[in-house]
């Protein structure tokens, strides 16, 4: 299983993501700088979290227009698995690889805490490590995680099972419509999620509920 991590100025969860991928895949990911126009053949491309370009204009807006994102889009079109976490999710939305938008948290506060996540679709390459309906712990840390889409898009996402993670048990930290925490593309090979599964993969993190996501997705090509 070959993986790649996209690097952009202002990201700050890249080291955590690289550590998680290295630990669980057994080999370190390639790192791909924003100016690269091609990404080698890999099975999974990850865009980590942080504050690319200082959140200027809109979260992820500038990053989404960098050359590397054209390479990510080309991979996504070919069916390569692509995952964006937190700012990575915002970047995928801004790049048009997933539908909708992430707005300022309804509370206007930055939230940094553990939430409960329900796995609402365990039949994707990313979530097959979980049982359908399983509720897991996962940390969040963001200021703009309030998922919004127009009614038609929302109905389509729900109807096609594209909502894969939902904030559970009243833990919605940001006002997201339908408690949406993570969605996949209509082909199912692009995942965006606000929570940070890479920060909950071993007991030293205070739990390992995020591990099954990586094990599931990394086992795909094994």
């Amino acid at each position: 299983m070959k993986t790649a991590v996209v690097l952009l100025p202002g990201l700050n969860r890249d080291r955590d993501m690289i550590a998680a991928l290295t630990k669980i895949a057994g080999t370190p990911p390639l790192t791909v700088w924003q100016t690269e126009t091609e990404i080698p053949d890999v099975d999974l491309i990850v865009i980590p979290g942080g504050f690319s370009y200082g959140d200027y204009l809109r979260c992820g807006a500038i990053a989404a227009r960098m050359p590397v994102m054209r390479a990510v889009a080309a991979h996504a079109a070919r069916g390569t698995l692509v995952m964006g976490v937190c700012n990575g999710f915002q970047i995928l939305l801004e790049a048009g690889l997933l539908p909708g938008a992430l707005m300022r948290n309804a509370s206007l506060k930055f939230v940094c805490r553990k939430v409960r996540l329900a796995v609402t679709n365990a039949n994707t390459a990313f979530t097959r490590g979980y049982r359908p309906g399983q509720v897991i712990d996962c940390p969040v840390a963001h200021h703009d995680g309030n998922y919004f889409a127009d009614a038609e898009t929302l109905a389509r996402l729900e109807g096609q099972g594209q909502v894969v993670f939902r904030y559970a048990e009243g833990t919605n930290p940001n006002g997201s419509l339908n408690d949406i925490a993570g969605i996949v593309s209509d082909r199912g090979n692009v995942l965006g999620l606000m929570p940070h599964p890479e920060n909950l993969i071993e007991p030293a993190h205070g739990g390992s509920d995020g591990r099954a996501l990586f094990e599931g997705v990394l086992g795909r090509a094994a």
Partner: peptide, 9 residues
Amino acid sequence: EKLLANTVI
């Protein structure tokens, strides 16, 4: 269309 506005919102 390409950058200044996110026409979703």
